[in-house]
Amino acid sequence: MSDSQRRLRIVVAKPGLDGHDRGAKIVARALRDAGMEVIYTGLHQTPEQIVATAVQEDADAVGISILSGAHMTLVPRIVELLEREGAEHVLVTVGGTIPAEDVAELKARGVAEVFAPGTSTQEIVEFLRSAAGESSSEAQAEAAARGS
């Protein structure tokens, strides 16, 4: 990554009522160590709070960590609210215990990637660099300038 490239800004979010924050905090720290700007929302956030944070922080991506089983209720709502706020360019990823059939459904509803338990932090870093890097407009312009 060149120094002139804008650092990716990632909101790590914990929606729902579960308190399982081990994964979210590990990912937040790994992304920070990889040179990204990380905003961790803390626990028990509503979709509205998460989207407000994403918009206010001008995030490139929102990484949602959820282990409460409420992902099919809460994740699509976050995607919809981002659209409503004109922030549909913000990449949405999910981590947690998500059954395979729900993964397909979430992707169909606009989630870029679902990281299953056991995913390494490098995989997440690499995915965000390539996917959020592409969707962030400045990075796009830079990519165009480089002709890639």
């Binding site: 729902g16 009522l17 579960d18 509503t46 409460s68 089983g69 409420a70 099919m72 209720t73 809460l74």
Partner: peptide, 10 residues
Amino acid sequence: PRSEGEVGRE
């Protein structure tokens, strides 16, 4: 409202 989607799940 905070319970939506979480009732009886875990």
